[in-house]
Amino acid sequence: MTITNALAGIAVDDIADALDFYERLFGRTADARPMKDVAEWKLAGGGWVQVFTDGDRAGASSLTLVVDDLGEELGRLELQGLKPVSKAIGDFFKTAKFRDGDGNQIIFSQPQPGTY
């Protein structure tokens, strides 16, 4: 078996409420709305992020997005009114953690030079 792509899922309580956050997070409206309660964003590397209504699982999702320049991304997100709940610098990555309105965790991560 060869895996050729991935779709990461984020469960939210109400897609209409979550869309504002995720549109600001990704800097654009969803690339696809395949169903009423689903919104999808295509990533430059080929994967997709799917945000969907699932009240039973809302708030229990975690997503890590790898970026080239964390500082630049944090500046863009701050202009959108989004501020991280925490930041960290480790041997391999610099990270910033965000939470959506349901409590789902979204981490932006930049590899340290020579580690990726």
Rank of each mutant, 00 (worst) to 15 (best):
T4D: 15
A6K: 13
L7S: 06
L7T: 08
G9V: 00
A11Q: 04
V12R: 09
D14F: 01
D14L: 00
I15R: 02
A16V: 00
L19Y: 01
L19W: 01
D20I: 07
D20K: 05
Y22V: 02
Y22M: 04
R24D: 05
R24I: 00
L25Q: 08
G27T: 14
R28I: 01
R28M: 13
T29V: 09
T29C: 05
A30F: 02
A30T: 02
D31S: 12
A32H: 08
R33D: 03
K42H: 14
L43M: 11
A44E: 11
A44L: 03
G45S: 12
G45Y: 08
G45V: 09
G45H: 01
G46S: 01
G46W: 05
G47E: 15
V49G: 09
Q50S: 14
T53H: 02
D54Y: 10
G55T: 14
G55H: 05
D56Q: 14
D56Y: 13
R57G: 06
A58E: 12
G59Q: 04
G59T: 13
T64C: 07
L65A: 07
L65D: 07
V67L: 10
D69C: 12
L70C: 15
L70Q: 11
G71E: 10
E73V: 09
L74P: 05
E78H: 09
L82Y: 15
L82G: 08
P84T: 10
V85D: 02
S86T: 15
D91N: 06
D91S: 10
D91H: 11
K94Y: 01
F98W: 02
R99P: 01
G101K: 03
G101Q: 07
D102L: 10
G103T: 15
Q105T: 15
F108P: 03
S109F: 00
S109A: 13
P111V: 15
Q112H: 10
